[in-house]
């Protein structure tokens, strides 16, 4: 027990002292996850609305595939993107492997299905009469789009947060595409994996605690935004 307690105490000390290495790693994680989530949202929110409102041939199959992709393993995404961006792969000329951009590409692919599917569900839950009334009143495409976004805003926020939670906690994509390069692509999760191997137990715990805190803060903010609006 002393071993674990000692580790936790040292971990808290590292956080309180704002250990520069810890700060750097946390910042790398936060910025990569933020950009990935933002890009995935820009594509995924309109995508989810389109999937919900547009009927096309083979939609049943599409929906099934989409639901399957929700549980896409991170290492599979890592492997697929790795083969694309390796210098010998089709996107090799862009030199994305072992950069933050490479990680972002993988993470966007990882959470795009999540955001699309959750936004689709949120749109489905809106009372159809609202949408039909808007159409009967002659709403333009843009107006209808804005109506749907505003009616489903809590569901959409939830979708974005789910995406963020997935990327900030994933290790497969970051490890395979980022290479865990110190000061460049070393994220909270890859550092925990690496530092535990090196026997730096408390360092790993410190990062783990911060990771949990980030998730807590993000969820708290969203909860606050959602309930604050209703009062």
């Amino acid at each position: 027990m002393g071993y674990i307690w000692g580790g936790i105490k040292q971990a808290i000390a590292l956080i309180i002292q704002l250990d520069p290495e810890v700060v750097e790693i946390v910042w790398t994680s936060v910025k990569l996850s933020t950009i990935s989530t933002l890009l995935a949202s820009i594509i995924g929110i309109p995508g989810g609305i389109a999937v919900s409102k547009i009927d096309f041939k083979g939609k049943y199959l599409f929906d099934t595939i989409l639901n399957t992709l929700l549980s896409l393993p991170t290492v599979v995404v890592g492997l697929a993107v790795y083969s694309l961006i390796s210098y010998r792969g089709p996107l090799g000329q862009l030199e994305l492997l072992f950069t933050g951009k490479g990680i972002i590409l993988g993470q966007v692919i990882l959470i795009l299905p999540i955001i699309v599917a959750l936004v689709r569900n949120a749109i489905h839950e809106i009372d159809d009469r609202i949408y039909d009334t808007a159409i009967s009143l002659g709403a333009t495409g843009t107006q209808r789009f804005r109506l749907l976004i505003s009616e489903a805003r809590y569901g959409i926020m939830g979708a974005v947060v789910a995406g963020y939670g997935r990327v900030i906690g994933e290790v497969g994509v970051s490890m395979m595409l980022g290479g865990n390069i110190r000061r460049v692509t070393r994220t909270i999760t890859t550092a925990i994996a690496l530092e535990t191997n090196k026997g730096r137990f408390s360092f790993g715990i410190a990062l783990g605690l911060i990771l949990l805190s980030i998730s807590f803060i993000v969820n708290f903010l969203i909860y606050y935004l959602q309930t604050g609006d209703k009062e």
């Binding site: 936060v30 910025k31 933020t34 950009i35 933002l38 903010l221 606050y224 935004l225």
Partner: peptide
Amino acid sequence: KKKLILVLVLTVLVSSF
């Protein structure tokens, strides 16, 4: 308060970019 939160979120976004 909500504005404050939005400003916070925007700060993270801008600095990330």
